[in-house]
Design a protein around this nucleic acid. Structure first.
Length: 340
DNA sequence: TCTGGGGTCCTAGGACCC
DNA sequence: TCTGGGGTCCTAGGACCC
């Protein structure tokens, strides 16, 4: 198997730098209140996603700021995926900016040449830097692309894989987050070599069945190289953060905007559009906690007025305006039924 | 340090049916 | 009338990803 992991570098920032010559080579961020994506030049200063924009502007006045241009990102993403599909039909999206490609049998025995061709085409035709990792499994390709960033190419061949695999830290594994690592750590397991000789039953009581199977297959080198083609979208959500507020009209106005955005995106998905049967409202407070309220709709609908009414009721259930905390984000999620 | 604005998948448990 | 076994569907909530 030959798997590529192709990953556009600092995607949102790179699109802005491509389209606006003044941004090129400069520290800049795509942000709205909070940094969503810093350019590599900005990262070099110590700026990272999630920083409040005001803090960035105070400390680094030279940093340029771009707002979001959703349409430009969607277009760039589509161009990227069209390019991926020229190399193979077996493309598994990871996000708008990255994908696994199974190019087994398509590389003329030269995976490096193929990966180079992909990077060059992305640069020439889409105008974006794309890092590529090559490996025998998705995990190895992903590790390789991580090492390749920014704007690089790394190959993990069989020899390097055999060398690397046992020493991989469990919290470096894609799919193992803080919670799972904590459980493994508490059991005395730190790296892949520690899994040697354990089987699924041994690990199930620690991390659950699905994770136990994954870990055992990673330890044995039989982990996943299967490309899963994308199915229909399962949900659409829209949210917006803002400086902490307890003003009801402000919160409701932002929520209404989110509903409009989500409805527009759902309509763009299918024709005729799938109608949500439920609605979720998300509220984040300035103490960092998050509340979600959900309820079935009276009838499946994309009518903004009906959704606003339902969302308003859910918002009231959060008691957002009565407990003294400030609200810093609101959003809606529309879960979508499977296509007919 | 775990943010923002998106998403997916897994698991547990309840409802309902035979 | 009650119990038990088994299957499916749905939802809530958590973990994880970029």
């Amino acid at each position: 198997m030959v798997i590529l992991h192709a990953d556009a570098d600092a995607f949102f920032a790179a699109v802005e730098q491509r389209d606006d010559p003044r941004m090129r080579g400069r520290p800049m961020v795509v942000a709205h209140e909070v940094v969503a994506c810093p350019s590599y030049e900005a990262r070099a200063l110590g700026i990272h996603a999630g920083m409040p924009l005001r803090q960035v502007q105070r400390r680094w006045p030279q940093v340029l700021v771009s707002g979001y241009r959703d349409e430009a990102y969607a277009e760039a993403s589509a161009a990227l995926f069209a390019l991926f599909h020229r190399f193979t039909p077996l493309v598994e999206p990871g996000s708008v900016e990255e994908a696994f490609l199974d190019v087994t049998g398509r590389d003329d025995g030269d995976p490096v040449g193929l990966a180079r061709a992909l990077r060059e085409a992305a640069r020439a035709e889409v105008g974006l830097p794309v890092s590529v990792g090559v490996g025998r499994t998705k995990l190895m390709a992903k590790l390789a692309s991580r090492r390749a960033k920014p704007d690089g190419l790394v190959v993990v061949d069989a020899g390097l894989e055999a060398h690397l695999r046992p020493g991989l830290r469990l919290d470096d594994l894609w799919g193992v987050g803080a919670t799972t690592y904590e459980k493994l750590h508490a059991t005395g397991l730190f790296d892949v070599a520690d899994l040697d000789g354990l089987d699924v039953e041994d690990l199930t009581f620690v991390v659950g069945t699905a994770m136990a199977r994954r870990l055992v297959s990673i330890a044995r080198g039989t982990d996943d190289a299967t490309i899963r083609l994308p199915g229909a979208r399962r949900s659409v959500s829209a949210s917006r953060s803002f400086p902490a507020t307890r003003t009801r009209s402000k919160v409701v106005a932002v929520l209404d905007t989110c509903i409009e955005r989500a409805v527009t995106r759902v309509r763009g998905l299918d024709d005729p559009p799938r109608l949500p049967r439920r609605l979720e409202v998300l509220v984040r407070y300035d103490d960092g906690t998050t509340a979600v309220e959900r309820a079935p709709l009276d009838a499946p609908t994309l009518d903004p007025a009906a959704l606003r009414t339902a969302a308003g009721q859910l918002l009231e259930q959060t008691a957002y305006d009565r407990d003294g905390r400030g609200v810093t984000l609101v959003g809606v999620t529309l879960p979508l039924p499977a296509p007919a």
